[in-house]
Amino acid sequence: MEIEPKKDLSTDLAQQRTAMASDRTSMAENRTSMAEDRSSLATARSHLANERTHLAYMRTGISLVSLGITMNRFSWFMMDNKSISRFGGIGFLNDAKNIGLGMVILGSAMLIWSLFRYNSATTAINNFQYQPAHRSVLIFTLVLILLGVGSTIWLIV
């Protein structure tokens, strides 16, 4: 009968610790890889949200410009039409013509602002320094509210 040599318990434990350390290193590398993937996906989502916001501003600006041109041209047409002129609506049509021009200017300003805002947000996202534009949104909203209130008062009076 052969006698089996006694295994050294400390050698087995050392080998197990080495294997566990190797597994932990592998898991840490996997976590790092997943974190990089999550970061790149988060950056992509931020850029896509920025593009959606830019497109919404562009839609609104184009709508304002289109409606303003329509109002302006229609007012000119109505003022040139002699059958409408005899009823005394020239003052109102002249005001509508000016409102149409104002809408074109406002829509153009919105298009310019959206391009500036898109570029600055893109740069900030790429540099990981994005800060919301609270002040510009507040100012733009207040200007639109004042225009709305002024238009309402003008329509009532």
Score class of each variant (00 low, 15 high):
2 E>T: 13
3 I>P: 00
4 E>N: 13
5 P>I: 01
6 K>L: 13
7 K>P: 13
10 S>D: 09
12 D>N: 10
12 D>H: 06
13 L>R: 13
16 Q>H: 08
17 R>P: 06
18 T>G: 00
18 T>C: 00
18 T>Y: 03
18 T>A: 13
19 A>D: 12
19 A>Y: 02
20 M>V: 13
21 A>L: 09
21 A>R: 05
23 D>L: 04
25 T>V: 02
25 T>R: 06
27 M>N: 03
28 A>H: 01
28 A>K: 02
29 E>T: 02
30 N>I: 04
31 R>S: 00
32 T>R: 09
33 S>R: 12
33 S>V: 00
34 M>E: 04
35 A>Y: 06
35 A>S: 09
36 E>P: 08
36 E>I: 03
37 D>E: 11
37 D>L: 08
39 S>L: 09
40 S>W: 00
41 L>S: 08
42 A>R: 01
43 T>S: 06
44 A>G: 06
44 A>N: 09
44 A>Q: 08
44 A>I: 06
45 R>V: 10
47 H>I: 07
47 H>Q: 09
47 H>N: 09
48 L>N: 10
50 N>I: 02
51 E>F: 13
52 R>C: 12
52 R>F: 15
53 T>W: 14
53 T>I: 03
54 H>M: 13
55 L>G: 05
56 A>C: 05
57 Y>K: 14
60 T>Y: 14
62 I>D: 03
63 S>L: 15
63 S>A: 15
64 L>R: 02
66 S>P: 14
67 L>R: 09
75 S>A: 15
77 F>A: 12
78 M>S: 12
78 M>D: 04
79 M>A: 03
82 K>N: 05
83 S>F: 11
88 G>D: 01
88 G>I: 07
90 I>L: 08
93 L>Q: 10
93 L>W: 12
93 L>H: 03
94 N>T: 13
97 K>M: 14
97 K>Q: 15
98 N>V: 01
99 I>K: 05
99 I>G: 03
101 L>C: 06
102 G>W: 11
102 G>K: 02
103 M>P: 01
103 M>A: 09
103 M>S: 08
103 M>Q: 05
104 V>W: 14
104 V>K: 08
105 I>C: 05
105 I>Q: 01
105 I>K: 03
106 L>N: 02
109 A>Y: 08
110 M>D: 01
110 M>A: 15
111 L>V: 08
111 L>P: 06
112 I>L: 14
113 W>I: 13
117 R>W: 02
118 Y>Q: 06
119 N>T: 05
121 A>G: 00
124 A>P: 11
126 N>L: 08
128 F>S: 11
129 Q>F: 00
129 Q>D: 14
